[in-house]
Simulated assay, not measured.
Amino acid sequence: MSGSPVDQVTVVCVTYRSARLAETMAATLCAFPHVVIVDNGSGDGGPARLRELLPHARVIERATNGGFGRASNEGVRAATTPFVLLLNPDCHIDMASLARLLDTLQRYPTAGLVAPQSWRPDGTAQVSYRQAFFERVPRAPYRVPDATCSAKWLHGCCLLIRTQAFARIGGFDEQFFLYYEDDDLCLRMHQAGLECLLEPAANALHVGGASSGGSAKVAFVKAYHYARSRHLAIRRYQGPKAALGYLVRTLLGGVPAVPLYALLLQRDYTIRWFGWTCAAAASLLRLAAADPSASGHRPGSQP
C-alpha cells in the first residue's frame, strides 16, 4: 500500500444519544484524518459537541432514527477511501491494530471485511466470531483463535471493510433496524464469494451498551427489534416455515412469561419478554394481512 495506511481509511461512526461519550469518541477519532459521524436523530446535543471536538470530521445529522444499517450505509456512501472502518461510539482501536487489519486485507485479497478481537474493559474476551446463527454447534467456552480465521459472523462493533465490496453487495439491508444486520452482512459477503476474517493480532476495546442508555423504554425497543430482526433473519436463511415456527413459539412463551415475571418483580425479564411478544404478534399480524404468494422473503421485500 502506498502512502500512510490511515489515509486509506474512513472511520464511520453511528451515534444515538451518545453525547456523554463525545470526549472518549474524540480521543479515539482525532488520530484519523477521515471521519464521518452519522447521528440517528438523537436530539441530545451530541453532534454539536462532536463538531467542536473533531472539526475535521463530517457530521451528518439525521432527522429521525433510521436504524444502524441505514445510518451506516449513509456514512459509507460519504466515504471516498478504499477502506471504511465501522466503529461503535463505545469502541476504541489503536493505530497498530488498524495497521494489522489493513495488512490482513492485503494478504487476503478475497476478503471483504476483517474484524479485530474485541475485549471488555475488565480484560474479558468478547465473542468476536462464530458460525452462522442457524448452524448448530456444540456449546463451548469462547476461545480467541491463534491465527487469522474465516467466520460466518463477526461482531459489528469494529469492522474494517473494503468499500467496493460493501457497495457490491448493497451494504447493510436496511430492513434490519437493530440486531442481525451484521449476521446478514457477513452471510451476503460469503454468498458473493468474499471472506469475512477475524484477525486476533488486532485488538479493540469495547465497553458495550454504553451508547443508548438503560431506561425501560430503551430496553423494550431493543427487545422488540431483536425478535423482529431474528424473525427476518430466520425467514431469509431458513425459510418461511422456520420463521413462522419462531413467531408462534415466541408468542406462546410470552403470554405466560410476561405476567409471571411481572408478579416476581423481575423487571428485566418482564420487559424482554414483553418486547419479544409484541414483535412476534406484530409480525404474525403482518403475515396474516399479506398476500400468501408473497410469503417467501427476499432482499427488499417487506417483512
Score class of each variant (00 low, 15 high):
A280V: 02
K241M: 11
R272D: 10
L105D: 01
A48C: 01
R298C: 12
L265Y: 12
F32L: 01
G3P: 00
H206M: 02
R49F: 02
L102E: 09
A281I: 02
Q126C: 12
G43D: 06
Q191I: 04
G41M: 05
P292R: 07
V127D: 00
R272T: 10
A111T: 07
A233H: 14
A243L: 06
N203R: 14
L21C: 01
A243P: 06
H155E: 13
P116R: 08
A79V: 03
M1F: 07
M1L: 09
A63N: 10
G123I: 10
Y179R: 13
R17L: 09
R168D: 15
L102S: 08
R168N: 12
S2H: 09
L54K: 05
A96T: 12
G156L: 03
Q266D: 14
A257N: 09
A227I: 06
G69Q: 04
V6Y: 00
Y16P: 00
A279E: 05
G75C: 13
A288N: 01
A243D: 05
R286S: 06
L105I: 05
P109E: 05
L53W: 08
L154M: 10
A147K: 09
L205N: 03
R286D: 07
E23T: 06
F133K: 04
L194K: 06
G275W: 00
R58P: 01
Q164N: 13
V258P: 07
Y237L: 09
V9G: 00
T80F: 05
T124C: 11
L260R: 14
A57Q: 02
A257L: 08
R130H: 13
N40R: 15
A167T: 10
R20M: 01
Q117H: 14
L197C: 11
R49W: 02
Y237K: 03
P138L: 09
S2R: 11
A216C: 08
F166M: 08
C158K: 01
A27P: 00
L178F: 15
G69S: 06
L247A: 05
G300S: 05
Y180F: 15
Y129L: 12
R249D: 14
T10C: 08
Q164E: 15
Q126P: 00
N88F: 03
D7K: 02
A227L: 09
V6K: 00
W153L: 12
